[in-house]
């Protein structure tokens, strides 16, 4: 009965010892002014996802100055980065990820924020360690315009063409109705009865008459000279 707790205690001591050793080694690593950028990439929820999606995904820091690779679970670590400002990009040929700017100050404090190239002083913080989620799938190809009947029919030009056509086709059909025939006849009679002069004729007579007069006048002037 007594042995068990003792063994547990010794185990605990050993664990503590290991932990201190580990923490010391990390401090040593960071002692030379080198830091670590950590994060995790989440794959898109897509059934078409290729099975080892990790192999096509890279982490580029400052456009490939430091390159990181992701593990099976999507986590990544970029080692030996000196303090400064870095743009962390996830490079995947099929899915788009938003880049993040990670700033490490000389004391080793981290800040992650959205990349804004235009308003460089604007700070929108994002959580650190980084959590990168796929925004959308890249659409490299424009969808080719396909010929569809509905597109064709609802084209305003087509509607403009088709409607008068319908009127022309349907109106004679309506003429079969005797009452409307009567009406139409009346309308045409009205048009005949009102003896309005033809517009074009009126104008031609007006202009031609005026022109001849003007010509005659100019001739007279010439003769006088």
């Amino acid at each position: 009965m007594f042995r068990l707790p003792i063994s547990i205690i010794t185990f605990g001591i050993v664990c503590c010892a290991f932990a201190t050793v580990r923490s010391q080694s990390i401090e040593e690593e960071l002692g030379n002014g080198r830091y670590v950028i950590e994060g995790r990439v989440f794959p898109p929820d897509d059934s078409e996802l290729k099975s080892p999606w990790q192999i096509d995904t890279r982490i580029h820091v400052n456009g490939g100055e430091y390159i990181g690779f992701i593990k099976d679970d999507g986590s990544f670590t970029i080692h030996n980065v000196p303090s400064g400002s870095y743009v962390v990009e996830i490079i995947n040929p099929d899915y788009m990820y938003e880049p993040v700017r990670v700033e490490i100050n000389s004391k080793g404090k981290y800040r992650a924020r959205k990349v804004n190239y235009i308003q460089t002083s604007q700070v929108i913080q994002v959580p650190y360690p980084l959590r990168m989620k796929a925004l959308a799938k890249f659409r490299y190809f424009q969808v080719r315009e396909q010929w569809r009947l509905t597109d064709f029919l609802f084209n305003p030009m087509i509607i403009m063409m088709v409607l008068p056509l319908l009127l022309i086709m349907i109106l004679p059909k309506m003429m079969n109705d005797p009452e409307t025939k009567e009406d139409l006849k009346n309308i045409s009679n009205m048009a005949k009865m009102s003896e309005l002069p033809e517009m074009s004729e009126m104008f031609t007579s007006l202009f031609s008459g005026g022109a001849t007069k003007a010509n005659a006048k100019s001739k007279q002037v010439k003769k006088r000279q």
Binding site: E29, R34, P52, Q54, F69, H79, N80
Partner: peptide
């Protein structure tokens, strides 16, 4: 600093990564 990385030989996925200074 050196980086020691372990890779899965079938898929090429990273398995372990640690730095040695």
């Amino acid at each position: 600093p050196y980086l020691v990385r372990g890779w899965d030989s079938a898929t090429g996925v990273l398995m372990s990564e640690w730095s040695l200074t």
